[in-house]
Amino acid sequence: MKSTPYYWPAWILLGLVGLTSLLFGAGTLELRQAFAVLAGQGTEEARFIVLELRLPRLAIGLVTGLALGVAGALLQTLTRNPLAEPGLLGVSAGSAFAVSLAILAGASTATLTTLVSQAGALAGCGLVILATRIQGVGQDPVRLVLAGATLSALLMSLTSLIMLIDQRAADEIRFWITGSIAGKNWEQLTTTLPTLVISGFIVIAVAKPLASLALGERVARGLGHRPGLVQLGVVIAVALLTGSATALAGPLMFVGLVVPFVARALGGADIRKTLWLCLPLGPAMIIAADTLSRLLVAPSEMPLGVITALLGAPVLLVIIRTRRIPTL
């Protein structure tokens, strides 16, 4: 299923983008010295900048990009809607609200956020599933998204309310909500690893039945799959992945929409090909955006969330204009 001519080029692209992110930005450092560090030498200061400032950002960019790309691909296939986005399940809004509550209660963005935002993501997603289950429409992806959009709107306004109440919280939340992978450390990365591993297993288990669901629910059942179980698995995986990504980088819009879109344009409509392509493409987008965010207004930085949108929009436009996008 990896058999698309774009698979290896996508990984090479990620490699180049990753290398660039180690060589440029986040701390002033001459290119020659950055190379020296990569070769295992370099001054103390150069080593600090490359290995302690830039490398964790690269790693976090890798993980968030992977999570958002895969989550987006899963959700778009499940809902058969190429415009579906992980944020639609109430996941981003749930974690944003949870983080806001925590900040209101006295936490700062540097502490606490990882677990809080994951808990919020799961709670948000759980509420959406519960709402559809109570109505007895739990297996209808369209209603799932509708319920998600409703809950998202509700939680967003509650978050705004918190920002109105407390000025300090408002500043912290505003910073967090634009999204950033700067100033994070390895510890924050490791707290998300268990959920990432769990969702990885879920994705492996559901990929094949999810692909067959694209042929229709009756066909999938006829092939011995259990669509209800697959849908539940997908929703949980999307919540876990988006929750982890949001915990690490804030609610980054657009990545979960654009990356699977590009992957599908390159590899065709089969979810397994899309997923394989999302693995390198998601991280490539975030890391490229992050590198740009350091370079554009150096020595200060642009918010990452702004760059992903600025980078994603033209890519999406070019793809839409030049290629036929397979329908889902």
Binding site: A214, L215, R218, V219, G268, A269, P326, L328
Partner: peptide, 9 residues
Amino acid sequence: PQDNSAPEG
């Protein structure tokens, strides 16, 4: 089943 559809491509 009847009236089956498959993803494009």
